[in-house]
Design a protein around this nucleic acid. Structure first.
Lengths: 196, 196
DNA sequence: TGGTGACGCGAGCGATCGCTCGCATACAAT
DNA sequence: ATTGTATGCGAGCGATCGCTCGCGTCACCA
Protein backbone atom coordinates (compact mmCIF):
# COMPACT_ATOMS: atom_id res chain seq x y z
CA UNK A 1 0.00 0.00 0.00
CA UNK A 2 1.46 3.24 -1.22
CA UNK A 3 -0.14 5.62 1.23
CA UNK A 4 -2.37 5.24 4.26
CA UNK A 5 -5.86 6.69 3.84
CA UNK A 6 -6.31 9.14 6.69
CA UNK A 7 -9.68 10.73 6.22
CA UNK A 8 -12.96 8.88 6.37
CA UNK A 9 -13.75 9.42 2.72
CA UNK A 10 -10.49 7.91 1.48
CA UNK A 11 -10.92 4.86 3.70
CA UNK A 12 -14.34 4.38 2.19
CA UNK A 13 -12.81 4.63 -1.26
CA UNK A 14 -10.31 1.90 -0.50
CA UNK A 15 -13.17 -0.33 0.59
CA UNK A 16 -15.09 0.51 -2.58
CA UNK A 17 -12.04 -0.40 -4.66
CA UNK A 18 -11.68 -3.78 -2.96
CA UNK A 19 -15.37 -4.49 -3.43
CA UNK A 20 -15.16 -3.46 -7.06
CA UNK A 21 -12.15 -5.71 -7.46
CA UNK A 22 -14.14 -8.64 -6.16
CA UNK A 23 -17.05 -7.81 -8.44
CA UNK A 24 -14.85 -7.50 -11.51
CA UNK A 25 -13.14 -10.76 -10.63
CA UNK A 26 -16.51 -12.47 -10.39
CA UNK A 27 -18.04 -10.82 -13.44
CA UNK A 28 -15.18 -10.57 -15.91
CA UNK A 29 -12.83 -13.25 -14.66
CA UNK A 30 -9.14 -12.94 -14.08
CA UNK A 31 -8.48 -11.87 -17.66
CA UNK A 32 -10.84 -8.95 -17.29
CA UNK A 33 -9.34 -7.91 -13.96
CA UNK A 34 -7.85 -4.62 -15.17
CA UNK A 35 -7.15 -1.57 -13.07
CA UNK A 36 -9.10 0.69 -15.39
CA UNK A 37 -12.14 -1.51 -15.13
CA UNK A 38 -11.88 -1.75 -11.36
CA UNK A 39 -11.63 2.01 -11.10
CA UNK A 40 -14.67 2.49 -13.33
CA UNK A 41 -16.65 -0.08 -11.38
CA UNK A 42 -15.73 1.60 -8.11
CA UNK A 43 -16.70 5.00 -9.51
CA UNK A 44 -13.13 6.20 -9.04
CA UNK A 45 -10.40 7.45 -11.33
CA UNK A 46 -7.38 5.29 -12.11
CA UNK A 47 -5.15 7.91 -10.52
CA UNK A 48 -7.04 7.73 -7.25
CA UNK A 49 -6.71 3.97 -7.23
CA UNK A 50 -2.94 4.20 -7.46
CA UNK A 51 -2.75 6.52 -4.49
CA UNK A 52 -3.42 3.61 -2.16
CA UNK A 53 -2.45 0.53 -4.16
CA UNK A 54 1.07 0.28 -5.63
CA UNK A 55 -0.01 -1.99 -8.46
CA UNK A 56 -2.66 -4.31 -9.73
CA UNK A 57 -1.38 -7.27 -7.73
CA UNK A 58 -1.92 -5.41 -4.48
CA UNK A 59 -5.61 -5.10 -5.28
CA UNK A 60 -6.07 -8.77 -5.91
CA UNK A 61 -4.10 -9.50 -2.76
CA UNK A 62 -6.46 -7.31 -0.78
CA UNK A 63 -9.48 -9.07 -2.25
CA UNK A 64 -8.06 -12.48 -1.43
CA UNK A 65 -6.96 -11.45 2.03
CA UNK A 66 -10.46 -10.24 2.82
CA UNK A 67 -11.89 -13.49 1.51
CA UNK A 68 -9.39 -15.57 3.46
CA UNK A 69 -10.10 -13.72 6.69
CA UNK A 70 -13.80 -14.12 6.12
CA UNK A 71 -13.38 -17.87 5.58
CA UNK A 72 -11.21 -18.33 8.65
CA UNK A 73 -13.70 -16.39 10.75
CA UNK A 74 -16.61 -18.54 9.60
CA UNK A 75 -14.74 -21.77 10.26
CA UNK A 76 -13.65 -20.61 13.68
CA UNK A 77 -17.17 -19.52 14.56
CA UNK A 78 -18.73 -22.79 13.46
CA UNK A 79 -16.07 -24.74 15.29
CA UNK A 80 -15.83 -22.66 18.45
CA UNK A 81 -18.36 -24.59 20.51
CA UNK A 82 -17.08 -28.02 19.55
CA UNK A 83 -13.47 -27.81 20.61
CA UNK A 84 -13.95 -30.58 23.12
CA UNK A 85 -14.91 -33.22 20.60
CA UNK A 86 -12.61 -36.07 19.71
CA UNK A 87 -12.40 -38.88 17.20
CA UNK A 88 -14.86 -39.30 14.33
CA UNK A 89 -17.25 -36.75 15.80
CA UNK A 90 -14.55 -34.10 15.75
CA UNK A 91 -13.48 -34.96 12.22
CA UNK A 92 -17.01 -34.71 10.98
CA UNK A 93 -17.72 -31.44 12.72
CA UNK A 94 -14.56 -29.90 11.38
CA UNK A 95 -15.39 -30.92 7.83
CA UNK A 96 -18.92 -29.69 8.29
CA UNK A 97 -17.72 -26.31 9.47
CA UNK A 98 -15.29 -26.04 6.57
CA UNK A 99 -17.95 -27.05 4.08
CA UNK A 100 -20.41 -24.52 5.44
CA UNK A 101 -17.82 -21.78 5.27
CA UNK A 102 -16.86 -22.61 1.70
CA UNK A 103 -20.49 -22.66 0.60
CA UNK A 104 -21.02 -19.04 1.62
CA UNK A 105 -19.35 -17.61 -1.48
CA UNK A 106 -19.01 -20.29 -4.11
CA UNK A 107 -18.38 -17.74 -6.85
CA UNK A 108 -15.26 -16.33 -5.27
CA UNK A 109 -14.09 -19.81 -4.33
CA UNK A 110 -14.45 -20.91 -7.94
CA UNK A 111 -12.57 -17.93 -9.30
CA UNK A 112 -9.84 -18.35 -6.70
CA UNK A 113 -9.21 -22.02 -7.34
CA UNK A 114 -10.04 -22.36 -11.02
CA UNK A 115 -9.29 -19.07 -12.69
CA UNK A 116 -6.54 -17.53 -10.64
CA UNK A 117 -3.04 -18.89 -11.13
CA UNK A 118 -2.25 -20.79 -7.95
CA UNK A 119 0.91 -18.72 -7.60
CA UNK A 120 -1.25 -15.71 -6.84
CA UNK A 121 -2.61 -17.02 -3.56
CA UNK A 122 -0.26 -19.96 -3.15
CA UNK A 123 1.85 -18.44 -0.40
CA UNK A 124 -1.13 -17.49 1.69
CA UNK A 125 -2.71 -20.90 1.24
CA UNK A 126 0.54 -22.74 1.95
CA UNK A 127 0.99 -20.79 5.17
CA UNK A 128 -2.55 -21.63 6.23
CA UNK A 129 -2.01 -25.29 5.43
CA UNK A 130 1.13 -25.32 7.52
CA UNK A 131 -0.69 -23.84 10.51
CA UNK A 132 -3.53 -26.33 10.23
CA UNK A 133 -1.04 -29.16 9.91
CA UNK A 134 0.60 -28.07 13.14
CA UNK A 135 -2.75 -28.07 14.92
CA UNK A 136 -3.38 -31.48 13.47
CA UNK A 137 -0.03 -32.80 14.69
CA UNK A 138 -0.82 -31.57 18.19
CA UNK A 139 -4.19 -33.29 18.07
CA UNK A 140 -2.66 -36.54 16.83
CA UNK A 141 0.04 -36.46 19.48
CA UNK A 142 -2.65 -36.40 22.13
CA UNK A 143 -4.11 -39.61 20.78
CA UNK A 144 -0.96 -41.44 19.79
CA UNK A 145 -1.99 -44.74 21.35
CA UNK A 146 -4.98 -45.00 19.05
CA UNK A 147 -3.09 -44.36 15.84
CA UNK A 148 -1.67 -46.62 13.19
CA UNK A 149 1.37 -44.47 12.51
CA UNK A 150 3.63 -42.51 14.83
CA UNK A 151 4.74 -40.16 12.06
CA UNK A 152 2.25 -37.46 12.90
CA UNK A 153 3.73 -34.90 10.53
CA UNK A 154 3.21 -37.13 7.53
CA UNK A 155 -0.28 -38.11 8.68
CA UNK A 156 -1.20 -34.45 9.09
CA UNK A 157 0.13 -33.62 5.63
CA UNK A 158 -1.99 -36.35 4.08
CA UNK A 159 -5.10 -35.49 6.07
CA UNK A 160 -5.04 -31.76 5.49
CA UNK A 161 -4.51 -32.14 1.75
CA UNK A 162 -7.30 -34.68 1.40
CA UNK A 163 -9.85 -32.80 3.45
CA UNK A 164 -9.05 -29.54 1.72
CA UNK A 165 -9.27 -30.98 -1.78
CA UNK A 166 -12.38 -33.02 -1.17
CA UNK A 167 -14.37 -30.26 0.49
CA UNK A 168 -13.42 -27.68 -2.12
CA UNK A 169 -14.20 -29.98 -5.01
CA UNK A 170 -17.44 -31.06 -3.38
CA UNK A 171 -18.58 -27.47 -3.24
CA UNK A 172 -17.37 -26.57 -6.72
CA UNK A 173 -18.22 -29.67 -8.71
CA UNK A 174 -21.41 -30.48 -6.82
CA UNK A 175 -21.12 -34.23 -7.40
CA UNK A 176 -24.27 -36.28 -7.00
CA UNK A 177 -23.57 -37.12 -3.37
CA UNK A 178 -25.82 -36.01 -0.50
CA UNK A 179 -24.14 -33.76 1.95
CA UNK A 180 -24.39 -36.10 4.93
CA UNK A 181 -23.13 -39.02 2.86
CA UNK A 182 -20.16 -36.95 1.83
CA UNK A 183 -19.41 -36.07 5.44
CA UNK A 184 -19.70 -39.74 6.42
CA UNK A 185 -17.30 -40.72 3.65
CA UNK A 186 -14.82 -38.04 4.60
CA UNK A 187 -14.97 -39.19 8.21
CA UNK A 188 -14.49 -42.82 7.17
CA UNK A 189 -11.52 -41.81 5.05
CA UNK A 190 -9.77 -40.03 7.90
CA UNK A 191 -10.73 -42.56 10.54
CA UNK A 192 -9.69 -45.53 8.41
CA UNK A 193 -6.39 -43.86 7.68
CA UNK A 194 -5.60 -42.93 11.26
CA UNK A 195 -6.91 -45.84 13.33
CA UNK A 196 -4.72 -48.86 13.90
CA UNK B 1 -6.28 -25.57 -36.32
CA UNK B 2 -6.85 -23.20 -39.21
CA UNK B 3 -5.17 -25.19 -41.97
CA UNK B 4 -3.57 -28.60 -42.16
CA UNK B 5 0.17 -28.59 -42.87
CA UNK B 6 0.64 -30.67 -45.98
CA UNK B 7 4.30 -30.54 -46.81
CA UNK B 8 7.06 -31.89 -44.62
CA UNK B 9 8.54 -28.50 -43.84
CA UNK B 10 5.26 -27.05 -42.55
CA UNK B 11 4.67 -30.06 -40.32
CA UNK B 12 8.12 -29.52 -38.88
CA UNK B 13 7.24 -25.90 -38.26
CA UNK B 14 4.12 -26.81 -36.34
CA UNK B 15 6.22 -29.09 -34.14
CA UNK B 16 8.77 -26.31 -33.63
CA UNK B 17 5.97 -23.95 -32.61
CA UNK B 18 4.61 -26.40 -30.03
CA UNK B 19 8.09 -26.97 -28.65
CA UNK B 20 8.70 -23.25 -28.50
CA UNK B 21 5.38 -22.85 -26.73
CA UNK B 22 6.44 -25.32 -24.08
CA UNK B 23 9.79 -23.59 -23.68
CA UNK B 24 8.23 -20.16 -23.35
CA UNK B 25 5.73 -21.51 -20.85
CA UNK B 26 8.56 -22.95 -18.79
CA UNK B 27 10.89 -19.97 -19.11
CA UNK B 28 8.60 -16.96 -19.04
CA UNK B 29 5.55 -18.37 -17.31
CA UNK B 30 1.96 -18.00 -18.36
CA UNK B 31 2.15 -14.20 -18.35
CA UNK B 32 5.01 -14.30 -20.81
CA UNK B 33 3.24 -16.76 -23.06
CA UNK B 34 2.71 -14.37 -25.99
CA UNK B 35 2.34 -15.32 -29.63
CA UNK B 36 5.09 -12.96 -30.71
CA UNK B 37 7.51 -14.49 -28.24
CA UNK B 38 6.61 -18.01 -29.24
CA UNK B 39 7.14 -17.16 -32.90
CA UNK B 40 10.52 -15.60 -32.17
CA UNK B 41 11.55 -18.59 -30.06
CA UNK B 42 10.52 -20.97 -32.83
CA UNK B 43 12.39 -18.92 -35.41
CA UNK B 44 9.15 -18.23 -37.21
CA UNK B 45 7.17 -15.14 -38.10
CA UNK B 46 3.91 -14.35 -36.30
CA UNK B 47 2.10 -14.62 -39.59
CA UNK B 48 3.32 -18.15 -40.17
CA UNK B 49 2.20 -19.14 -36.71
CA UNK B 50 -1.34 -18.03 -37.46
CA UNK B 51 -1.53 -20.12 -40.60
CA UNK B 52 -1.86 -23.27 -38.49
CA UNK B 53 -3.14 -22.04 -35.13
CA UNK B 54 -6.34 -19.97 -35.02
CA UNK B 55 -5.33 -18.19 -31.83
CA UNK B 56 -3.10 -18.22 -28.82
CA UNK B 57 -5.29 -20.63 -26.91
CA UNK B 58 -4.91 -23.29 -29.58
CA UNK B 59 -1.15 -23.27 -29.04
CA UNK B 60 -1.39 -23.80 -25.32
CA UNK B 61 -3.97 -26.51 -25.95
CA UNK B 62 -1.54 -28.28 -28.26
CA UNK B 63 1.22 -28.07 -25.66
CA UNK B 64 -1.04 -29.46 -22.95
CA UNK B 65 -2.44 -32.17 -25.18
CA UNK B 66 1.07 -33.35 -25.99
CA UNK B 67 1.95 -33.34 -22.31
CA UNK B 68 -1.24 -35.19 -21.38
CA UNK B 69 -0.69 -37.86 -24.01
CA UNK B 70 2.88 -38.25 -22.84
CA UNK B 71 1.74 -38.68 -19.24
CA UNK B 72 -0.95 -41.20 -20.12
CA UNK B 73 1.52 -43.18 -22.19
CA UNK B 74 4.02 -43.34 -19.35
CA UNK B 75 1.43 -44.43 -16.82
CA UNK B 76 0.06 -47.07 -19.16
CA UNK B 77 3.54 -48.38 -19.90
CA UNK B 78 4.50 -48.60 -16.23
CA UNK B 79 1.22 -50.24 -15.40
CA UNK B 80 0.91 -52.58 -18.34
CA UNK B 81 2.56 -55.60 -16.78
CA UNK B 82 0.74 -55.35 -13.48
CA UNK B 83 -2.87 -55.47 -14.56
CA UNK B 84 -3.41 -58.70 -12.69
CA UNK B 85 -2.65 -57.27 -9.28
CA UNK B 86 -5.34 -56.71 -6.70
CA UNK B 87 -5.77 -55.11 -3.32
CA UNK B 88 -3.03 -53.09 -1.62
CA UNK B 89 -0.40 -54.28 -4.08
CA UNK B 90 -2.39 -52.92 -6.99
CA UNK B 91 -3.04 -49.61 -5.26
CA UNK B 92 0.62 -49.17 -4.53
CA UNK B 93 1.73 -50.06 -8.04
CA UNK B 94 -0.74 -47.67 -9.56
CA UNK B 95 0.41 -44.83 -7.36
CA UNK B 96 4.02 -45.72 -8.10
CA UNK B 97 3.42 -45.60 -11.82
CA UNK B 98 1.62 -42.29 -11.56
CA UNK B 99 4.35 -40.85 -9.40
CA UNK B 100 7.06 -41.95 -11.81
CA UNK B 101 5.21 -40.47 -14.76
CA UNK B 102 4.69 -37.14 -13.00
CA UNK B 103 8.34 -36.93 -12.03
CA UNK B 104 9.49 -36.98 -15.65
CA UNK B 105 8.70 -33.34 -16.29
CA UNK B 106 8.23 -31.55 -13.02
CA UNK B 107 8.62 -28.16 -14.66
CA UNK B 108 5.68 -28.55 -16.98
CA UNK B 109 3.63 -30.13 -14.20
CA UNK B 110 4.32 -27.12 -11.98
CA UNK B 111 3.41 -24.62 -14.64
CA UNK B 112 0.25 -26.55 -15.50
CA UNK B 113 -1.05 -26.82 -11.97
CA UNK B 114 0.27 -23.65 -10.36
CA UNK B 115 0.56 -21.02 -13.03
CA UNK B 116 -2.09 -21.89 -15.56
CA UNK B 117 -5.69 -21.06 -14.71
CA UNK B 118 -7.37 -24.38 -14.04
CA UNK B 119 -10.01 -23.44 -16.60
CA UNK B 120 -7.40 -23.81 -19.31
CA UNK B 121 -6.90 -27.53 -18.88
CA UNK B 122 -9.88 -28.20 -16.66
CA UNK B 123 -12.03 -29.89 -19.28
CA UNK B 124 -9.30 -32.25 -20.35
CA UNK B 125 -8.46 -33.11 -16.75
CA UNK B 126 -12.09 -33.55 -15.79
CA UNK B 127 -12.63 -35.94 -18.69
CA UNK B 128 -9.57 -37.95 -17.66
CA UNK B 129 -10.79 -38.08 -14.07
CA UNK B 130 -14.16 -39.34 -15.22
CA UNK B 131 -12.57 -42.13 -17.23
CA UNK B 132 -10.35 -43.18 -14.35
CA UNK B 133 -13.31 -43.11 -12.00
CA UNK B 134 -15.18 -45.47 -14.29
CA UNK B 135 -12.25 -47.86 -14.31
CA UNK B 136 -12.16 -47.59 -10.56
CA UNK B 137 -15.87 -48.33 -10.24
CA UNK B 138 -15.42 -51.45 -12.35
CA UNK B 139 -12.55 -52.57 -10.16
CA UNK B 140 -14.54 -51.96 -6.99
CA UNK B 141 -17.56 -53.80 -8.34
CA UNK B 142 -15.39 -56.87 -8.77
CA UNK B 143 -14.48 -56.80 -5.09
CA UNK B 144 -17.74 -55.65 -3.58
CA UNK B 145 -17.75 -58.26 -0.84
CA UNK B 146 -14.54 -56.84 0.63
CA UNK B 147 -15.70 -53.25 0.71
CA UNK B 148 -17.12 -51.09 3.44
CA UNK B 149 -19.47 -49.19 1.14
CA UNK B 150 -21.55 -50.33 -1.80
CA UNK B 151 -21.67 -46.84 -3.31
CA UNK B 152 -18.80 -47.42 -5.70
CA UNK B 153 -19.26 -44.19 -7.60
CA UNK B 154 -18.78 -42.12 -4.48
CA UNK B 155 -15.82 -44.23 -3.35
CA UNK B 156 -14.19 -43.83 -6.75
CA UNK B 157 -14.73 -40.07 -6.68
CA UNK B 158 -13.05 -39.82 -3.29
CA UNK B 159 -10.19 -42.15 -4.19
CA UNK B 160 -9.33 -40.57 -7.53
CA UNK B 161 -9.30 -37.07 -6.11
CA UNK B 162 -7.14 -38.04 -3.15
CA UNK B 163 -4.59 -40.02 -5.13
CA UNK B 164 -4.35 -37.33 -7.77
CA UNK B 165 -3.92 -34.51 -5.31
CA UNK B 166 -1.47 -36.31 -3.07
CA UNK B 167 0.79 -37.55 -5.86
CA UNK B 168 0.88 -34.20 -7.62
CA UNK B 169 1.59 -32.31 -4.44
CA UNK B 170 4.20 -34.85 -3.39
CA UNK B 171 6.07 -34.24 -6.63
CA UNK B 172 5.66 -30.47 -6.58
CA UNK B 173 6.12 -29.66 -2.92
CA UNK B 174 8.70 -32.36 -2.21
CA UNK B 175 7.69 -32.76 1.43
CA UNK B 176 10.19 -34.40 3.75
CA UNK B 177 8.74 -37.87 3.29
CA UNK B 178 10.69 -40.75 1.73
CA UNK B 179 9.17 -42.05 -1.44
CA UNK B 180 8.39 -45.54 -0.13
CA UNK B 181 6.89 -44.12 3.04
CA UNK B 182 4.66 -41.93 0.93
CA UNK B 183 3.54 -44.89 -1.14
CA UNK B 184 2.83 -46.87 2.05
CA UNK B 185 0.76 -44.03 3.44
CA UNK B 186 -1.18 -43.64 0.23
CA UNK B 187 -1.88 -47.36 0.21
CA UNK B 188 -2.97 -47.26 3.84
CA UNK B 189 -5.26 -44.35 3.09
CA UNK B 190 -7.02 -46.14 0.23
CA UNK B 191 -7.10 -49.50 1.94
CA UNK B 192 -8.39 -48.08 5.21
CA UNK B 193 -11.08 -46.22 3.34
CA UNK B 194 -12.22 -49.15 1.23
CA UNK B 195 -11.94 -52.15 3.52
CA UNK B 196 -14.80 -53.03 5.83
C1' DT C 1 -11.87 32.63 7.65
C1' DG C 2 -7.74 31.85 5.51
C1' DG C 3 -4.39 28.49 4.44
C1' DT C 4 -2.36 23.97 3.95
C1' DG C 5 -1.99 19.34 3.06
C1' DA C 6 -4.79 15.38 1.91
C1' DC C 7 -7.65 13.94 -1.68
C1' DG C 8 -9.46 13.01 -6.23
C1' DC C 9 -9.58 13.55 -11.17
C1' DG C 10 -8.90 11.92 -16.07
C1' DA C 11 -6.38 12.59 -20.25
C1' DG C 12 -3.02 10.15 -21.97
C1' DC C 13 1.94 8.01 -22.22
C1' DG C 14 4.71 4.13 -23.50
C1' DA C 15 4.57 -0.56 -24.02
C1' DT C 16 2.71 -4.79 -25.34
C1' DC C 17 -0.70 -7.55 -26.94
C1' DG C 18 -3.19 -10.74 -30.46
C1' DC C 19 -3.52 -10.86 -34.94
C1' DT C 20 -3.71 -9.42 -40.29
C1' DC C 21 -2.32 -8.78 -44.93
C1' DG C 22 0.20 -7.87 -49.01
C1' DC C 23 3.92 -9.92 -51.00
C1' DA C 24 8.03 -12.89 -51.84
C1' DT C 25 9.55 -17.71 -52.08
C1' DA C 26 9.61 -22.83 -52.36
C1' DC C 27 7.52 -26.86 -53.88
C1' DA C 28 4.68 -30.14 -56.87
C1' DA C 29 2.25 -31.20 -60.94
C1' DT C 30 2.27 -30.77 -65.85
C1' DA D 1 10.21 -24.74 -68.06
C1' DT D 2 5.77 -23.18 -66.51
C1' DT D 3 2.09 -22.73 -63.71
C1' DG D 4 -0.75 -23.19 -59.53
C1' DT D 5 -0.63 -23.66 -54.83
C1' DA D 6 1.25 -24.16 -50.42
C1' DT D 7 4.36 -21.82 -47.49
C1' DG D 8 6.61 -18.19 -45.07
C1' DC D 9 7.63 -13.39 -44.02
C1' DG D 10 7.43 -9.13 -41.01
C1' DA D 11 5.83 -4.48 -40.72
C1' DG D 12 2.37 -2.83 -38.40
C1' DC D 13 -2.84 -2.12 -37.10
C1' DG D 14 -6.13 -1.37 -33.54
C1' DA D 15 -6.92 -2.23 -28.98
C1' DT D 16 -5.83 -2.56 -24.34
C1' DC D 17 -2.91 -2.56 -20.67
C1' DG D 18 -0.66 -0.70 -16.20
C1' DC D 19 0.34 3.38 -14.61
C1' DT D 20 1.66 8.77 -14.21
C1' DC D 21 1.20 13.60 -13.46
C1' DG D 22 -0.40 18.17 -13.39
C1' DC D 23 -4.13 20.45 -11.59
C1' DG D 24 -8.49 21.39 -9.32
C1' DT D 25 -11.26 20.33 -4.89
C1' DC D 26 -12.23 19.41 -0.25
C1' DA D 27 -11.61 18.72 4.79
C1' DC D 28 -9.49 20.30 8.83
C1' DC D 29 -6.72 23.44 11.93
C1' DA D 30 -5.33 28.09 13.27
Amino acid sequence: MRKQPQQKRSRAMVERIISAGREVLLGDGYDGFSTNRIAARAGVSPGSLYQYFPNKEAIIDAVLEQYGDDLAERVAAALGDRLGDTGPRMIRDTADALLTALEKDVGLLRVSTEELPATRHGDRLAALERRVQELCVAYLAGRRDLLRSSDHATSAWVLVLCVETLTVRYVLDAPDIPRDVFLDELTALCQGYLAR
